[in-house]
Simulated scan of single mutants.
Amino acid sequence: MRRLLGCVALGVLVAGLVACGPPRKSVFPPTVSVQEMSMRPDGQWRLTVRIQNNSYGEMDFKSIDGELKVADLVPVRLHGRFNLEIPAFAADVTQIDLLPTPEMSAALKATAGKGSAGSVPYSVAGNAAAKPEQEDKTRDFSFHGTDWFSPVPGIPNTWR
């Protein structure tokens, strides 16, 4: 009986010590999408990229490295470095410039005359480097998303 009481006391002590530690916040990959895209006079595209933190704690986002694919055309590299501290379940944006292929630009220009009725599918995929608030090191989180580019009425050379 004394041995059983000793084991129970030890179990209660261990459980009490485990409960004293700080709770770990769950970390999940972000959602990355293009909020807006505009064609610049020099042929480059300026993307406003939206990063949604899907974790229960703040994350410090440092960069994204991936690809942007418009329609079924050859993808181009999507890369940007920044410093965004995004709270739990919140989002922020950053701007990234890239040089599209001529076929990608032609596909979007073909929809420009159709107004909001015209659209072109796109996808983004890659990795986002971020440091969760309870961790010491930055790590990579993969992302993949699809959506549509549609011309913005009244704002030339701009798609959302």
Score class of each variant (00 low, 15 high):
11 G>K: 04
12 V>Q: 01
12 V>P: 00
13 L>E: 07
13 L>V: 15
14 V>S: 05
14 V>R: 06
15 A>M: 13
15 A>N: 06
16 G>P: 11
16 G>W: 10
16 G>L: 14
16 G>C: 13
16 G>D: 09
17 L>Q: 15
17 L>Y: 13
17 L>N: 12
17 L>M: 15
18 V>S: 11
19 A>C: 04
19 A>L: 12
20 C>N: 05
20 C>M: 15
21 G>T: 14
21 G>K: 14
22 P>T: 14
22 P>N: 11
22 P>S: 14
23 P>L: 05
23 P>F: 03
23 P>A: 08
26 S>L: 14
27 V>Y: 00
27 V>R: 01
29 P>W: 11
29 P>D: 07
30 P>W: 06
32 V>D: 12
33 S>Q: 15
33 S>H: 06
34 V>G: 05
34 V>N: 07
34 V>H: 05
35 Q>H: 09
36 E>G: 03
37 M>L: 15
37 M>V: 13
40 R>K: 15
41 P>L: 07
42 D>L: 08
42 D>K: 10
42 D>Q: 10
43 G>D: 06
44 Q>E: 15
44 Q>F: 04
45 W>Q: 04
46 R>P: 05
46 R>Q: 15
46 R>A: 15
47 L>H: 08
47 L>N: 11
48 T>V: 15
48 T>H: 04
52 Q>K: 09
53 N>T: 02
53 N>E: 05
54 N>Q: 12
54 N>H: 08
55 S>W: 04
55 S>R: 04
56 Y>N: 08
56 Y>M: 06
57 G>I: 01
58 E>R: 08
59 M>Q: 13
60 D>A: 13
61 F>A: 05
61 F>E: 05
62 K>E: 10
62 K>R: 14
63 S>Y: 11
64 I>F: 14
64 I>M: 14
65 D>T: 14
65 D>A: 13
65 D>V: 10
66 G>Q: 05
66 G>P: 12
66 G>K: 03
67 E>S: 11
67 E>Y: 02
68 L>M: 12
69 K>I: 03
69 K>D: 00
70 V>T: 12
70 V>K: 04
71 A>C: 02
71 A>R: 04
73 L>M: 01
75 P>H: 05
76 V>Q: 06
76 V>H: 01
76 V>E: 08
76 V>S: 05
77 R>P: 01
77 R>T: 12
77 R>M: 10
77 R>D: 11
78 L>P: 04
78 L>H: 09
79 H>Q: 13
79 H>K: 13
80 G>V: 09
80 G>D: 08
80 G>I: 10
81 R>V: 10
81 R>T: 15
82 F>E: 08
82 F>T: 11
82 F>K: 10
82 F>L: 10
84 L>V: 02
85 E>W: 00
85 E>T: 03
85 E>R: 10
86 I>A: 02
86 I>E: 03
88 A>M: 00
88 A>S: 07
90 A>H: 10
90 A>K: 12
90 A>D: 03
93 V>N: 12
